[in-house]
Amino acid sequence: MRIGLAALRSGRRAFGPASAPKDQDRSRSAGRRSGAPRAGLQAIGHDWSHFRDVVLILVRRNFVSRYRNTAIGMAWALATPLLFLLVFYFVFKVIINISIDKYASFVYIGILAWTWLQAAVTDGTAAITSNPNLVSQPGFPVAALPIVSVTANLFSLAVAFPVLLALLIVEGARPGFAILWLPAIVVVQYALTLGLCFFAAALNVAARDMQHIVPILLQIGYYLTPIFYSGDKVPGHYRAILRINPMYGLLESYRAVLIDGRIPDLAGLAATLAFSLVLLVTAASYFRKASYRFLEDL
């Protein structure tokens, strides 16, 4: 993700905050010349730490505002996926009697990973349109907003992680050292989600339809991703089609690492990573170009 953004850093509107001393900045007519002559490393250092602080403070605001003033507070981050788990377990294990081993862990992993994507993309779609006052603030790095959507929802997920571990142990899964691959898979999903968020956020400014299209796409994605069923049961040629969905491979990787204690399919993971990075770079550059027009449409 850093690689992708670093390549695009010259766009100050989207990524760079106000400059440090002696940093000269020009914004010329679009198309003829863009970007600014950068000052020394100091300026870049300040830009980065400011960008990071913007993301952190907004993630914190998001998190605190979501759970403060609710009766059970952060427990909501636990309760929501748990409720879904109970329903799925009841419907598919108790009623339909699906033949998947360690089904609670299996479903819970699917729910958590998908909830992250879904919540982040939903928030990300509205990230610009619901924050016009931040977008019009000089020096505010608007690219932070989609990043906040993805990061804040990752934290909600982290709250639920101990429950997942407990579930794995109860069901007799032995994650082992393969769990060290978990951060890598999370990074791939982060890049994928962020790419989607950059696109959705920028598109939604020009056409507010995104707010309606995105939930439909996410709902469809929910059923076409093996969250409560196993990809193995999908007939061969359909499986090839479903595999185009990058979440398909990611879920398999999560389950391999957590339930089976296996190293994930590295070729598949690398392909998903490559896809996600291409998406991220394209989306971020589109976002950067669109960002100068945000205020005209807000």
């Binding site: 100050r12 509107r13 020009r26 914004s27 010329r28 007519s29 679009a30 603030q137 205020l295 005209e296």
Partner: peptide
């Protein structure tokens, strides 16, 4: 610099 000019700088 929250809007980009069409002319000038």
């Amino acid at each position: 610099d929250v809007m980009r000019p069409d002319e000038g700088e």
